[in-house]
């Protein structure tokens, strides 16, 4: 059983937003909402500056508060540990939005909560997620965290990395490579 995860290489990401735009077409994300976005974090004072650049999305937490918060199991864990929302079962109580420490969820105009699915529909066809495959800098890597042959596995072995808000104890599967 695979354990899907994603890395964002902050060395390579230029916050161009190609991932954001590709994701919106791929997943028909409504205007005003986005499943991934970019962040620039500026530090320092002229001329000693640094800018962290990355693209963020659902962390597909291994210990996902959104999953426990959902009264109807609409938010549930799919194959590979991917956290997804079943539109039918979603009653729109928004408990998951409140529970998610990362604000990655949005209320779809059609009255259900939506978010990144790690493009499971593509992954099932053996493709990379849309954001990964469009990325002109190849800053994004998707794969099975348990497969030693996977690029992502090696990256996490070799490179310094961090996750968002580790203190939340959510065990994210989206890793940021330093």
């Amino acid at each position: 059983m695979a354990r899907y995860g994603m890395t964002v290489d902050e060395k390579l990401c230029v916050t161009c937003n190609a991932c954001v735009i590709a994701c919106k077409s791929e997943n028909n994300v409504p205007e005003g909402a986005a499943r991934c976005w970019t962040v620039q974090a500026e530090k320092g004072t002229f001329p000693f500056l640094s800018v962290e650049t990355r693209s963020e999305r659902c962390n597909h937490c291994e210990n996902a508060p959104c999953v426990s918060a959902c009264p109807t199991q609409a938010t549930h864990v799919e194959e590979g540990g991917v956290v997804v929302v079943d539109q039918d079962k979603c009653v729109g109580c928004k408990a998951c939005i409140v529970a998610c420490p990362y604000e990655v969820r949005y209320l779809h105009p059609d009255g259900y909560v939506d978010k990144c699915t790690f493009c499971l529909h593509r992954v099932r066809q053996g493709k990379d997620p849309a954001c990964v495959s469009v990325c002109p800098t190849s800053a994004l890597t998707f794969g099975d965290l348990d497969d030693p042959r996977a690029k992502i596995f090696q990256q996490l072995q070799q490179r310094q990395h961090r996750v968002a808000k580790p203190e939340e104890g959510t065990r994210p599967k989206l890793f940021f490579l330093k």
């Binding site: 916050t15 976005w37 500026e42």
Partner: peptide
Amino acid sequence: GETMTYQP
């Protein structure tokens, strides 16, 4: 203390 910019 970073200045954060988000897009969109």
